[in-house]
């Protein structure tokens, strides 16, 4: 019955994921448009990260389907989802700590780099040109987030503070120019001021890339209020509210989910 509207970027229908007897996602319905920023909120264990993992192909869905840009990606591998234009960050930052900032960002650029063995080993001149162009691009992207950081591109990530790691993780997700960015608790482990800075950065990126759609999982309601166009509230894997922040904040069910029954 759900008719997907023409400019829907992501359409999720009756998406279900079970872990044994636990229903982590229960008949989830969601429609998202190009350029939209959606906040995905809900208490711990309500299925937010599971939703990301199912979308990106890390978990197989037990029912329902996911369409992205018109194509069915429900059964796609993580690789195929990335190639289709979805990239993500992780709740527990998953950077490669011994590698440099540049290397980490280039991991996210996989689909735009030449992967042939012959090219990489024997055509070093051509490789050098690709390397130099990629370096400039990565540097320019990091500069948007933090100018001093852009001068430290060859330093290992392991020595950087949490906020810089988050920035690099977002750069890694953005460098391949995805259509949809999934941010899983970008502010986890950061102070209030750092969180604010990071959100400013994200809004700036959004202004530069108008087409970019973002789904953000976040516990800080201030952040959600400030940057999202619309919010979706999950509880026990079910969608219990869908609307602007003001709407969901006034919603009785949402209040109950967060505060418990009076």
């Amino acid at each position: 019955m759900t008719q997907t509207s023409p400019d829907a970027l992501l359409t999720v229908q009756a998406l279900t994921k079970r872990f044994g007897g636990l229903v982590a996602l229960d008949q989830l319905e969601l429609e998202m448009y190009r350029g939209e920023i959606i906040g995905l909120i809900g208490p711990n264990g309500s299925g937010k990260t599971t939703f990301f993992n199912v979308i990106t192909g890390l978990y197989g869905a037990d029912g329902g389907n996911v369409r992205f840009g018109g194509a069915d990606i429900t059964r796609s591998t993580p690789q195929a989802v990335y190639h289709a234009g979805i990239s993500r960050t992780f709740q527990r930052s998953r950077l490669s700590l011994p590698l440099s900032i540049f290397d980490n960002i280039m991991i996210g650029n996989h689909k735009r780099l030449s992967q042939g063995v012959w090219f990489n080993i024997m055509r070093r001149g051509a490789f050098r040109a690709e390397f130099a162009a990629s370096f400039e691009e990565a540097r320019a992207l990091v500069e948007v987030f933090d100018a001093p950081l852009a001068d430290r591109m060859l330093e290992p990530v392991g020595g950087l503070p949490m906020i810089d790691r988050r920035r690099i993780e977002i750069c890694r997700a953005l460098i391949s120019r995805p259509k949809l960015l999934l941010l899983d608790e970008p502010s986890a482990g950061m102070t209030h001021d750092e969180t604010k800075q990071l959100m400013d950065d994200i809004l700036e990126i959004r202004d530069r890339i108008q087409e970019l759609s973002i789904v953000i999982v976040e516990h800080e309601m201030g952040v959600i209020e400030r940057i999202t166009d619309r919010c979706i509230v999950l509880n026990f894997g079910r969608k219990i509210a869908d609307g602007t922040f003001a709407m969901i904040a006034a919603d009785k069910q949402v209040q109950e989910a967060y505060l418990g029954l009076q």
Binding site: T77, S96, I107
Partner: peptide, 19 residues
Amino acid sequence: IGLNLDALRLDETAAQCFG
């Protein structure tokens, strides 16, 4: 290629998510 190998050694899941 060297970067690919490092990426899959250090975090296979993240590497998968980047194609």
